[in-house]
Design a binder for these strands. Sequence first.
RNA 1: CGGGACGUAGCGCAGCCUGGUAGCGCACUUGCCUUGGGAGCAAGGGGUCGCCGGUUCAAGUCCGGCCGUCCCGACCA
Length: 635
Amino acid sequence: MRRERPGGGEGSRRRRGGGKRCGGSLRAGKSRENGQGERYRGRSRPVCRAPVGGREEGALIRYSEYLMPTSKETPSDAEVVSHRLMLRAGLIRKVASGIYNYLPAGLRVLRKVERIIREEMDRAGAQEVLMPAVIPAELWKESGRWEAYGKELLRFRDRADREFCLGPTHEEVITDLVRREIHSYRQLPLNLYQIQDKFRDEIRPRFGLMRGREFFMKDAYSFDVDEESAAVTYRKMYDAYGRIFRRMGLEFRAVEADTGAIGGSSSHEFMVIADSGEDAVVSCERCEYSANVEKAECPPDGSERPSSPSPGTPRKVSTPGKRTIEEVSSFLGIAPGLLLKTLLFETDKGDVAVVLSGSHEVNETKVKNHLGADWVKLAGEERVRELTGAPSGYAGPVGLSVRVLADHSVRGIACGATGANEKDAHLVDVVPGRDFQPEAYADLRLVEEGDRCPRCPGPLRFSRGIEVGHVFRLGTKYSKSLSATYLDAGGKERMIVMGCYGIGVGRTAAAAIEQHHDPDGIQWPVSIAPFEVCVLPVTMKNAALVKEAERVAEDLSGKGIEVLFDDRDERPGIKFKDADLVGIPLRVTFGEKNYEAGYAEIRDRKKGETVRVGISAIADRVCAELDLKRKECAP
RNA sequence: CGGGACGUAGCGCAGCCUGGUAGCGCACUUGCCUUGGGAGCAAGGGGUCGCCGGUUCAAGUCCGGCCGUCCCGACCA
């Protein structure tokens, strides 16, 4: 049983963060006059206007009183860095699968993420609202999603046996609100957002805050009179998202995403680039083009020549036991790129053969979209025999009785080889257009590293990404099902055109860690760090030193800086390790020798560099360093 | 929901095969010592071995059921 019991929780609170509570803080207490008053002031005192960074108030938190239980060891169920480090740094604790407590420092991070989102949403003209987490079933029944959504929707009944669900998303609620309040084109456009607790009963929660069941999400919904106006709103949101993630110091890409079953005209996913990302992203080395793998286009690159029928016929050759592209290619001495790979699909639109160059892989999403199908599935061994009369590995388009689609790459094969639809036999000298006629040439393959960008001559590169945001043009899907309409200037009733825009708050924080960490711990970008500076007296036994360190800490917080004052009576090594682990961007260290000489040190967590500075100049220097770091998080 | 694994002190684990006194490291408490990168010595506290049932003189260990958790696949912020 991993769960902490009440008693255990208390114990763990004292373990490290609150550790040495008696010994340590009593001694530390001597260095300040009155524990309680000081403590109150340190926690929530509003501080005078800040000259630095436009911030209004700072903070001075005493570590000895703060619940930030760090640990050297990693809980065994944490797999990815961000999850491990959030646990080790005392930011979160698990309550149940996919459900977490946010401890004080973790909550500080989330609040900062939220704050940046709020500022940019407001700037973009959106208005904040707050919708309920508990939603009556009627709304979901009306949109048809009560049945369609599946088990991810957590349903329950109240005391009067009325049905409710926990909201996994809020299209129904917002559309209901808007259809009641909006009746005229004069009230549009409108863009409403909230930052709210969502619940999705995920089949498989994992990776800590990266994929929880309960999580904070910013969701925005826009309402416009027509597609043109909706496109403007979409662009505004797209731009706002760029500002948001830049301000958080994240390296990201806005990638074109497949709109899939939802339809709609366009959709972009905002991906934070990180090796541990769950999604594959392709982007151009030269221009701005980025797409996720399903969506990435592979247009004909011009090297393909149109196939003009030429005289002759294909020749059958014996290829005993040669089924794979590699086997056939080396057996016949023909390059894989000249093989006509033929794949058979079962779909809701009937059976289809897809032909592409042997050096490429098929993209099922593209096949599905091309056919306008709801589903496609690679045919099994049995079905392949039924359709071709041969075991798999010997299928070919010549003489095949199902629909044949060809990838653009097939056009480049003037004379190729393919399966003969007969066991242990292939055809050579096969000419597309002469020996078989595809119903269409289309983009049906998966992109590959080094492919030419569809927008420019640059090469495409692969990377991994974490989807932290998604913007979507919804069209009239929900306004239709929930009949949200308005009257235009001519008095005519029209459907409101919608868009929706999400950002995962906790996931964004997790993504920031994935992108900014080293073996010692987190390296927060200043804009979302729980604290900006850690003031660290190396010993609590030297009263004068502690007092001076505290004075500097107060000075900094008075300037609007968020300070963690490590007043724990711990050995220096422990304090250093904790400051690194928690990832506070700057550390001001008061050591005895330096102090006697009138100096302290400022250490940069990310660069790992330390500078020795006269104590009287510390505050100014810290402000300057922070300003530089804040500029790195410029929108 | 399918496939795999795990559940023993707050955390990380051993013990189980071959049934017989519940252990180790870290953390915690006390004392000494130490004080610029998770020190050292000594003495302590802490466990319904996930739950229920069965086999047995005897179950952490063997058997059955249940619960929980994690990993791999289809979904998503």
